[in-house]
């Protein structure tokens, strides 16, 4: 376990460096520059702007400077939102996405695990067929179809929940009604995956000899499921949780757009489309760090769950 984790830890800076380099040059190599879009700009003004943001230096210098900034966690100024630094924008927007993502993840875990476990231990029951059918729909119907449909039904038709928007209650946390539809939309495909994985894991495990041993001891089904079967069944789910974070992040681009939530995903799309390079880079790096961190966390949890790995 220790050695394994060490190996993963060594990979972290490499992953981040690859990501930063890739996105940095992808942005720099693009034709045009951030200020070329603004038509009526004076050549002298443009030059001044380029100088101000260090865009007149050769790329390698720019790259090194950017890395230096990163080392002090400074992501630089935004090119398009005057007077704001990328750090400030991220600090403002990311918590909103975090609230949404976290809610969705909790929801997805609760839904997915419950459905998956019950389907697994009641294979071929109506519940199993029903929930696996729903899970398949969850996998096949894109978020951007589900979102508008939910908004249409619960927002417009029934009027129970707001169609869109984000009225804050405290800090990044909104009044719950603004969170319900977006969180459900975001959670759905994720819950579907978890349910399928859990069910498969459960099926796998309940056919294991050691579960038969547990029955032969006279334990009740609930104990067998929770104490003996759950851990093994959870392993595939846990490995999925790392990539799932990436999925939830990408999902939130769309969901934030549909429900007009002022989060970092929406901000990313906007900044990519209007070439706010530093902001784009900053967001990509943030996402990368999150992904890496979650993958590591998942590894730790995995080892924690499976003693064979922990002591290997």
């Amino acid at each position: 376990m220790g050695r394994y984790l060490f190996k993963r830890l060594v990979q972290v800076p490499i992953v981040l460096l690859v990501l930063i380099t890739l996105s940095f040059f992808m942005v720099r190599l693009a034709p045009g520059n951030p200020f070329s879009g603004e038509k009526k700009m004076d050549e002298s003004v443009r030059q001044a702007l380029n100088a101000k943001y260090g865009l007149d230096a050769p790329w390698p210098i720019q790259y090194l400077k950017y890395l230096k900034g990163l080392a002090t966690l400074d992501l630089g100024p935004s090119y398009k939102q005057k007077g704001l630094t990328v750090n400030e924008i991220i600090a403002e927007k990311a918590p909103v996405s975090a609230v949404l993502g976290l809610t969705a993840m909790i929801l997805a875990l609760a839904l997915g695990l419950t459905a998956g476990i019950i389907s697994g231990i009641r294979q071929n029951s109506n519940f199993d067929y029903g929930s696996m059918g729903v899970a398949m729909i969850g996998l096949s119907v894109p978020t951007f179809v589900v979102g508008p449909l939910l908004a249409l039904v619960f927002g417009l038709k029934l009027g129970w929940l707001p169609v869109a928007g984000y009225e804050r209650m405290a800090g990044p946390i909104p009044y719950p009604q603004y969170l319900i539809l977006p969180a459900i939309t975001l959670a759905l495909p994720f819950a579907a995956r978890i349910a399928r994985l859990t069910r498969a894991g459960m099926l796998d495990v309940i056919n294991q000899d050691y579960i038969r041993t547990a029955w032969a001891k006279g334990l009740r089904e609930r104990v067998i499921v929770l104490r003996h079967a759950m851990r093994g069944a959870m392993l595939p789910v846990v490995s999925f949780l790392g990539p799932a974070v990436a999925q939830i992040l990408t999902g939130s681009l769309v969901v934030e757009q549909i429900f007009q939530i002022p989060g970092i995903g929406y901000e990313f799309v906007k900044s990519a489309l209007n070439r706010d390079y530093t902001l784009v880079l900053g967001t990509v790096i943030l996402f990368g760090v999150l992904l890496v961190a979650f993958n590591l966390l998942v590894d730790v949890i995995y080892g924690f769950l499976d003693p064979r790995i922990r002591y290997a």
Partner: peptide, 19 residues
Amino acid sequence: DILYGIPYMFLVILLLVNF
């Protein structure tokens, strides 16, 4: 493993926007 750790969709978005 290393490439797995990269949030690809974001790079794809960058690619499409810029190129």
